[in-house]
């Protein structure tokens, strides 16, 4: 027993909301994606902690799936960033407002 589980989850929560803040505050698509990565890692930390807490391997397996999924997501979203940059010459999220109602 190294630390109380609450402390691990608290760290994860801090990381998670920092990632959320990054997504909300930054306007560059790259930084928004980075914020998403931070949040995903926070989720991974909770999963690993849960795995240790319940003495079961499943949490760690889910981190593996999480990573696989993240790499898929990142590859596609970065490809989209490149594509948008090519088409519109910008990576600022607020410049894309063709969907305005």
């Amino acid at each position: 027993m190294i630390v109380p589980v609450l402390h691990v989850v608290a760290v994860a929560a801090i990381l998670f909301f920092m990632g959320l803040a990054c997504i909300l505050a930054r306007r560059s698509l790259i930084m928004i994606l980075i914020g998403a990565e931070i949040m995903l890692n926070a989720a991974g930390l909770v999963l690993v902690a849960a795995s240790a807490y319940w003495q079961r391997i499943d949490g760690q397996l889910f981190v593996l799936f999480l990573m696989a999924m993240t790499s898929a997501e990142v590859s596609i979203s970065l490809a989209l960033v490149v594509y948008l940059r090519r088409r519109q010459g910008t990576v600022v999220a607020d410049d894309f407002r063709k969907m305005s109602g």
Binding site: M1, V3, P4, V5, L6, A49, S51, A52, Y53, Q55
Partner: peptide, 12 residues
């Protein structure tokens, strides 16, 4: 929810 219970040592 969880109180103060700690994480037992675990190795996978």
């Amino acid at each position: 929810e969880s109180g103060k219970s700690g994480i037992p040592p675990y190795y996978a």
